[in-house]
């Protein structure tokens, strides 16, 4: 059953050193505030899973908390490179970063398998690509009915999935809408689920195409207005594109990056960050 918690307490209780953590949101509803709380608490040796690592994982990687990254597209969307990600992969700074790299279709199906509690998923993919030469989570399987050889991808079952949604009600039922991405699958694939929301309401508003996660499928709900900033939260805020652009020169430089984390994350509080 979802408890309504503070961000500090929910993160401290649900996310531990060495965990595999998926923080999803396909460029929309990215749970930045929760990631900053992970940085403040110094939770480390994480395996992070996310289709598009985005600036959120650039920050966690640069902060030295990440051992391994499972992903399918690692850029700063609409801007360019993720420099902290590149520095970790290319130079091992601030620590080496192990990669498990896929295509989007492969990652989406890995979450589907995880949510279904199956060991793997089947797709037509990866044929002729060099991607399978660098990962042990892609293989092939022969269809028992037709004999066709298909790609098999290992299920992802994170210890914890963290997502940001627009609303929760007072019982902890969660609703998100707009581009719903892979959040439902990522949440249902995980052992523990933490959801930050724009607001807690008496009654969830009806929304076309919304994903509703019942309270009994979630461990903790935290009200964090602006918790997806600088990404989008449909119905609440648009992307702070200036931030995404400004991130490029900050992330290019190790010292500028560290100063930014110090000023905007470490010396801030969950409450202060939300009020930003």
């Amino acid at each position: 059953m979802a408890d309504i918690r503070t961000l500090h307490d929910a993160v401290a209780e649900l996310i531990h050193d060495g965990d595999t953590v998926a923080m999803e949101g396909f460029t929309h509803l990215i749970p930045f505030a929760a990631a900053h709380e992970i940085i403040r608490q110094g939770i480390t040796d994480l395996t992070l899973v996310r289709m598009t690592p985005d600036v959120i994982y650039d920050q966690l990687i640069g902060a030295g908390l990440v051992r391994k990254l499972v992903f399918s597209w690692g850029g700063n969307p609409g801007v360019g490179s993720l420099h902290r990600f590149r520095d970790a992969v290319e130079n091992g700074w601030p620590r080496p970063l192990e990669l498990d790299e896929h295509s989007h279709a492969g990652m989406a199906n890995r979450y589907v398998a995880g949510a279904s509690r199956l060991p793997f998923a089947v797709l037509r993919g990866y044929r002729g690509s060099d991607i399978p030469t660098r990962t042990d989570t892609v293989s092939t399987v022969t269809c028992p009915f037709t004999g066709e050889e298909l790609a098999a991808v290992a299920a992802i079952n994170p210890d914890v999935t963290v997502i940001h949604a627009q609303q929760a009600d007072r019982q902890g039922n969660v609703r998100l809408w707009g581009l719903v991405g892979v959040q439902k699958e990522a949440a249902l694939a995980a052992d523990r689920v933490l959801v930050t929301v724009e607001e807690i309401v008496d009654e969830l508003s009806p929304q076309a195409g919304a994903v509703t996660l019942p309270a009994w499928a979630i461990n903790a709900v935290v009200e964090v207005p602006g918790g997806a900033h600088p990404s989008y939260a449909a119905g609440y805020s648009v992307r702070d594109n200036d931030f995404y652009k400004a991130w490029d020169p900050i992330a290019r430089d190790r010292e500028k990056f560290q100063a930014w984390i110090r000023e905007h994350v470490l010396e801030n509080t969950a409450e202060g960050a939300a009020a930003r």
Binding site: F71, S72, G74, E101
Partner: peptide, 9 residues
């Protein structure tokens, strides 16, 4: 490093 595959394959 480049961004990776995304949806392309």
């Amino acid at each position: 490093r480049l961004p990776g595959a995304g949806g392309a394959p």
